[in-house]
């Protein structure tokens, strides 16, 4: 549905996006993850036809964004970082205006307006002036604006920014409900948001793509080994030495004793599963095993790891250059 090939955007000597290529399949929700200033907004603006790229190609819904921009724009809903609202207009007249310029069939403007308002929780707000709405409601109007012409493709730049926790959940549900029928790209710097809403993630840093995968794979792939947390009752003086005998165990650490339970943290390397061996060792030495679980590495850790790895590499390259 969306095909991006070697996209580069330069502002003078500054490169905002460098050689970015990716693909989004029909009905997929893709998350664009990166720190502020990584090039998320720039990429989205290029895809929405707001400005052209310096180099590269982007095909959206079968049309080249640079050669047939109007065809692309007809099929695309875009919510910029700051919702593009006219404060002096009422919600109804604003949405009607957007419906008109997006080319919604004249006879359907009324019904689209009602549908979008219900979908975005604006049913009661129709006659209110936009400038009187709270930040959360403004964001909803922005979302309604992107949905009004029922576009095949939605590009949402930080759709949950500025919302309270309940509204965030509502917006996420709304986005999830679009999956399958709509192709969605959303950007965010909130990591849990990606694992909650997206089927695939692109991690972008300093204008370059550092990883593309499903949220599950990303967390699994990077972990390399597991972190296993245990809770053991009784005296644990010897346990460290015992556990370290198990092949595949990298390190063992004992935490502070709480209610007669000792938290123990075991880090393993390699893909080999050693949990059963750990359990055997603990019980075999006469201790009580209350809990054994693997802590999966969170996207947050993946993200930090990926973005700092990149920096380390860059520094190394720069160092060699000198």
């Amino acid at each position: 549905m969306i095909q991006v090939e070697h996209l580069t955007k330069r502002y003078g000597s500054h490169t905002a996006v460098e050689d970015v290529s990716f693909e989004v399949r029909k009905g997929e929700i893709l998350g664009f993850l990166g720190p502020n200033g990584a090039g998320k907004t720039t990429t989205m603006r290029i895809l929405s036809g707001f400005f052209p790229a310096t180099e590269g190609r982007a095909i959206v819904a079968g049309f080249d964004v640079f050669k047939q921009p109007l065809e692309v724009k007809r099929r695309l809903g875009y919510l910029p970082e700051n919702p593009p609202l006219y404060g002096e207009m009422s919600v109804n007249s604003y949405l009607r205006f957007v419906a008109n310029i997006k080319g919604v069939d004249r006879a359907q403007v009324g019904s689209r307006l009602e549908e979008v308002k219900i979908r975005c929780g604006l049913a009661e707000e129709g006659p209110r002036l936009i400038k009187q709405l709270s930040k959360g409601y403004k964001q909803r109007v922005g979302l309604a604006q992107a949905l009004i012409h029922d576009p095949e493709i939605l590009i949402l730049d930080e759709p949950t920014i500025g919302l309270d926790p309940r509204q965030i959940i509502e917006v996420r549900e709304l986005i999830k409900s679009l999956a399958g029928t709509h192709t969605v790209i959303l950007s965010t710097h909130i990591l849990p948001e990606v694992s909650m809403t997206c089927q695939r993630v692109i991690i972008i840093n300093k204008g370059k793509i550092v990883a593309v995968d499903t949220p599950e794979n990303l967390t699994g792939q990077l972990a390399g080994g597991e972190t296993i947390e245990l809770e053991i009752g009784g005296s644990v003086d010897n346990i460290v030495a015992l556990l370290q005998e198990i092949p595949g165990v990298k390190s063992v650490s004992v935490g502070e004793r709480k209610n007669d339970h000792n938290p123990v943290c075991v880090e393993t390397e390699g893909a080999k599963n050693v949990r059963h061996l750990i359990a055997q060792k603990v019980i075999g030495s006469g201790l009580e095993l209350y809990q054994l679980r693997t802590r999966s590495i969170s996207l947050e850790e993946v993200f930090v790891q990926l973005t700092t790895e990149e920096e380390a590499k860059e520094e190394a390259v720069e160092g060699e250059g000198k």
Binding site: G49, K73, Y78, P84, L85, Y86, I101, Q145
Partner: peptide, 14 residues
Amino acid sequence: KQGTIELLLTSPLT
């Protein structure tokens, strides 16, 4: 200034 130009320029308008 208001960013509404983003709406106008990403709409199918000439």
